[in-house]
């Protein structure tokens, strides 16, 4: 006699296998019957059950009782409830996918809320800040506020001014380089807390060429770095450090918006 190895649960289900296909509504039961039907023992059980059910069906039902069931099934099929629908793997998968899509959309929307003219450049410069070593910069030991003259005299960069909030910071080095859009960027490294300053041209309207201004200070975040950006005279100033917004907040004046 063929008796395939079946787990306890499959054996339990096979013992309760329905007599007719109509009652085979459950996926786990269908799977158990599929696994068990190769055994002679199960085949005997099925023919035994069918014979007993046939005998039960032959039990005469009194006419006054039979008329109650003449037009309808004895039991109405179980309803497709919300609970059952939610537990369906396909519905569950679609639900999870929709939640993920909604999450991404919300994340992008929230990120957009914090955008300002020049935020894309600021993020790129944050990546540069994270990868820069101080040895790459020309050593300069001075107050950051005094470097405006250096940038103007040496590089012809007008209005590359360090705001008053950061003007007193002692510098370690500085450099001027061109970014991937051939914009000239000034980078300053100061002694305090690995803070770096960047000065770069503010974003302009592509049609009119007018500077796209924004008031006060705006924060950007990128891979564990945070920066505060402000615009003045068509030049953006950015102070960046590794950490969170609260690490940078004490340096920003109360005029921040």
């Amino acid at each position: 006699m063929k008796t395939p190895h079946l787990s306890r649960r499959i054996r339990a289900l096979a013992n309760c296998a329905p007599i007719t296909e109509e009652q085979m509504r459950d996926r786990s039961m269908r799977s158990a019957v599929f696994r068990a039907r190769t055994s002679d023992e199960f085949a005997n059980q099925q023919s035994f059950d069918q014979a007993v059910a046939g005998l039960v069906r032959s039990i005469p039902i009194p006419p006054d009782i039979a008329e109650w069931f003449s037009a309808k099934d004895l039991v109405s099929p179980s309803k497709w409830t919300w609970k059952k629908t939610v537990r369906n793997p396909a519905v569950l998968a679609i639900g999870i996918a929709l939640v993920v899509i909604a999450g991404v959309l919300v994340f992008q929307f929230v990120a957009r809320l914090n955008d300002f003219p020049g935020s894309a450049t600021a993020r790129k410069l944050l990546t540069i800040a994270a990868s820069t070593r101080s040895v790459l910069l020309d050593p300069v030991s001075a107050d950051a506020g005094t470097l405006s003259d250096l940038f103007f005299m040496k590089h012809g960069l007008e209005h590359y001014d360090v705001p008053a909030e950061f003007a007193d910071f002692r510098t370690i080095g500085c450099r001027v380089f061109e970014d991937d859009q051939s914009q000239r960027v000034a980078q300053i490294w100061v002694a305090e807390k690995r803070i770096q300053f960047f000065l770069f041209p503010a974003e302009r309207d592509v049609k009119t060429g007018a500077v796209l201004r924004f008031p006060g200070w705006r924060y950007v975040h990128q891979e564990g770095w945070v920066a505060a950006v402000t615009e003045h005279n068509g030049v953006c100033f950015m102070a960046a450090l590794p950490g969170r917004e609260k690490d940078l907040a004490p340096y920003i004046s109360k005029t921040k918006q």
Binding site: N15, M29, V56
Partner: peptide, 30 residues
């Protein structure tokens, strides 16, 4: 079970049994 009107989950609900109990009762009954 032999009324053949209910699936096993409905029988478990009606008879207030667990699957293992129903399985044993039917197997022993047969």
């Amino acid at each position: 079970f032999y009324l053949d009107e209910f699936d096993y989950r409905e029988i478990l609900d009606l008879a207030e049994l667990k699957l293992s109990e129903l399985s044993r009762l039917l197997a022993v009954g047969r």
